[in-house]
């Protein structure tokens, strides 16, 4: 199976690899997937007091498409507000990376990861509100 050039580019030069301090109140962490399924993504965002995503970092265990999907979404969310970042759909990721049907779940996982990171950040800021 051949990967698209964009997937190869993200795989060979992943953007924003790394970790942020998960105990920092300004940092939201999303950990999705499962080792048994062959995909785990950890996506972290640092959010400014104005609600803008200033930085994003990821680490991914998975195939090339999973690595590319998470690398791409860290690029996309940087500079966006939380509300904007929340609107990113897996279909946009799949389309941008030209993922074949069997790899669509990689883009779904990336969408889940950013949503989980945003939720984590919000629950740290106001636990009651996030739980609603």
């Amino acid at each position: 199976m051949a990967y698209s050039e964009k997937v190869i580019d993200h795989y060979e030069h992943p953007r924003n690899v790394g970790a942020l301090d998960k105990n920092d109140p300004g940092v939201g962490t999303g950990l999705v997937g499962a080792p048994a399924c062959g995909d785990v993504m950890k996506l972290q965002i640092r959010v400014s007091p104005e609600g803008i995503i200033e930085d994003a970092k990821f680490k991914t265990f998975g195939c090339g498409s999973a690595i590319a999907s998470s690398s791409l979404i860290t690029e996309w969310v940087k500079g966006k507000s939380l509300d904007e970042a929340e609107t990113i759909k897996n279909t946009q990721i799949a389309q941008h990376l030209a993922l074949p049907p069997v790899k669509i779940h990689c883009s779904v996982l990336a969408e889940d990861a950013i949503k989980a990171a945003i939720l984590d950040y919000r629950s740290k800021r106001s636990p009651a509100k996030a739980a609603e």
Binding site: V17, L31, V32, A34, K42, T60, H105, V108
Partner: peptide
């Protein structure tokens, strides 16, 4: 270096103790 599981293992987190969501 890119793997969250490797990072957890280095930090001493038992990966089997985490409740992973099946997907």
């Amino acid at each position: 270096d890119l793997s969250p599981l490797w990072e957890m293992a280095q930090e001493g987190v038992d990966i089997k103790s985490i409740k992973w969501a099946a997907h």
